[in-house]
Design a protein around this nucleic acid. Sequence first.
DNA 1: ATAATATATGCAAAAAGAAGGATATATAAA
DNA 2: TTTATATATCCTTCTTTTTGCATATATTAT
Lengths: 127, 127
Amino acid sequence: MELISLHKCLCDRQRLRIVNLLSEGSLCVCHLQEILGENQAKISKQLQYMKKLRVVFARREGVWMVYSLPVPTHPVLLATVEYLRSNEADDFACFAEDLQTRSSILQRYADNIAECPQAVYQSATGC
Amino acid sequence: MELISLHKCLCDRQRLRIVNLLSEGSLCVCHLQEILGENQAKISKQLQYMKKLRVVFARREGVWMVYSLPVPTHPVLLATVEYLRSNEADDFACFAEDLQTRSSILQRYADNIAECPQAVYQSATGC
DNA sequence: ATAATATATGCAAAAAGAAGGATATATAAA
DNA sequence: TTTATATATCCTTCTTTTTGCATATATTAT
């Protein structure tokens, strides 16, 4: 991940929301789609863009593509995520709400693991 | 300064170089022009762009426009500048060289204060 | 093999950004 | 007022992103 590419990713609100969500754990496209309330193609294209710049990383699990942030986290990405959670961000509400939405969605899988890739479920339950 | 605007500024190599330079102290357009080896109009346009997004701040001193970073420094901007100096940046050399060039140029003013705005001279000599 | 679900991609239009060259404005000095 | 220096802006072209819509691919289940 290169510095300029990273900033390119982070200068778009939707990609910033994606990064914020992934910083809590892996997610697949359909989850992002649901949380962000966007059509599938758009989310997928954003993810391809981010993947090409190596800001996110993808692996397949069955029918699902699971996206996550590469570790170790780039210091600038880390600073950005921290800032988003610091309440200092001007438009902070949206990012906090996204994390809430993520939690509720992942709760659903507590009863029905088969509807969700392992990797996502694990990060949801923490085991 | 808003987070998205900040990232917009930082996703361009030239603007990144400008931010890196200003993080050491104020500079006027002609200095940036000389250090970056670019024509005046281009530098000026970049600065207007950055000013509009409130990533830099300008004040006039005689014929000169002195540009600087607003204080306190935004945490994400700080992280970026630190990263640039950490040698981890892929294309690190250019940023370090810029700071060198800046020093040599400011040395000239040690003998001839009149050729340079006070604000710049002060940050050059540290007084 | 077919169907269903999840995800990716191709294409064209729209929007935003970058670059060059010429020119305009502002300040200070003569 | 004229001139010189420093800086800003206009206009046009070129490239890059973004978006919508349709379609293609991949995996799994039937």
